[in-house]
């Protein structure tokens, strides 16, 4: 019976997140248009795009292999599996000890499947896009993983039930430590996470693998029709989930406690409030960033990750752990 409720909840979450993430894309396009003094498309534009793509012809290139057709399905499957381990205002549904590692690997897997699909399409544009995606995938993980494991390790000391699980983020958060050092460290890590989020959803500086004007949409160059639609949905879910991680790590507070709700209403209130917070984080890291910045070259982006963000992450991590290490009293 318990399993049945969990499964039903999972399906509900999947439908809700698909809706919310596509809606965010519409809000994002509208906001960016307003920043550029345009009217912008209607809020439901991504839904129209999705329905159009589903109903269009899907061309399979002659030079492609079987993975080309399978990759969009795998990508969406990975995105759905990821939802089971995503903190959404409450602990993940199937969360357990150490699920943060599973979360990071599933998130990376979506990018990796995009690379696989692009590499098996047989198009040179898609292959250049795949190479760039692979390079940036390797570069962006290091600062983020260092940051998140430091935070997990630090809040383990505050006494959580399951260490290194995403649910622990809702029991204690990084601001509770309260020392000036840890707050500065957490702020530096917040900056690193925002940059990581922007590169994860490939906007602004990091719109490199899908460079429309130079690479003919890069990794997505050969996809059309319903295969493209599946990829677009998987990408929208991925953007929502990545932002959810930032929200859960840095802004985990819920509203149900203040409103005095329990049971199912509490879960729904927290989910809605979480969605608001995700939209706020994405507004900073996606809409504003996209509206004010252009694309970097791949060498510049990789350089930025290894020579700016990784040192920033190391400094932030050191500031967080420095009072436990006992270097200063």
């Amino acid at each position: 019976m318990n399993l049945l409720y969990t499964t039903l909840g999972f399906i509900g979450i999947y439908l809700y997140v698909s809706f919310a993430s596509l809606l965010w894309e519409g809000i994002d396009r509208k906001l960016v248009a307003r920043m550029q003094r345009r009217m912008g498309p209607p809020l439901l534009q991504p839904f129209y795009d999705f329905l159009k793509m589903v109903s269009k012809e899907s061309i399979i290139p002659r030079d492609s292999n079987k993975l080309f057709e399978l990759a969009p399905v795998f990508a969406l499957a990975a995105a759905i599996a990821l939802l089971a381990y995503t903190p959404l205002g409450f602990g993940p549904l199937f969360g357990t000890r150490g699920d943060i590692i599973l979360f990071i690997y599933l998130l990376t897997l979506i990018g990796f499947i995009r690379v696989l699909g692009a590499a098996s399409s047989g198009s040179p544009y898609a292959q250049i896009g795949a190479q760039r995606e692979m390079i940036i995938l390797v570069s962006r993980e290091a600062p983020m993983m260092l940051g998140i494991f430091t935070i997990m390790w630090r809040i383990r000391d505050l006494g959580v039930s399951k260490p290194f699980s995403l649910r622990a983020l809702y029991e204690h958060n990084i601001w509770e430590i309260g020392t000036p050092m840890s707050i500065i460290g957490a702020l530096i890590l917040l900056f690193v996470f925002m940059a990581w989020l922007a590169s994860e959803i490939e906007v602004g500086f990091f719109d490199i693998p899908e460079a429309e004007t130079e690479l003919a949409e890069g990794t997505m160059a050969e996809y059309s029709g319903r295969h493209l639609a599946l990829f677009e949905l998987a990408n929208a879910i991925k953007a929502f989930v990545s932002a959810s991680l930032v929200v859960a790590v840095f802004f985990p507070w819920g509203v149900s406690g203040y409103l005095g709700l329990t049971g199912l209403p509490a879960v729904i209130a927290d989910l809605l409030f979480h969605t608001l917070k995700v939209f706020a984080v994405l507004f900073v890291s996606m809409s504003i960033f996209r509206a004010v910045s252009g694309r970097l070259r791949i060498t510049q982006a990789v350089n930025m990750f290894w020579t700016r963000l990784l040192p920033a992450s190391i400094v932030g991590a050191l500031l967080l752990v420095i009072d436990t290490l006992g270097v200063i009293a």
């Binding site: 550029q36 003094r37 209607p42 061309i59 003919a216 997505m220 050969e222």
Partner: peptide, 18 residues
């Protein structure tokens, strides 16, 4: 911004497949 075709959902794409 003066004509703003995007308000009708028009998007300039980089590949004929889209």
């Amino acid at each position: 911004p003066r004509y703003d075709a995007e308000r009708f959902g028009v998007k300039l794409v980089g590949t004929p497949r889209h």
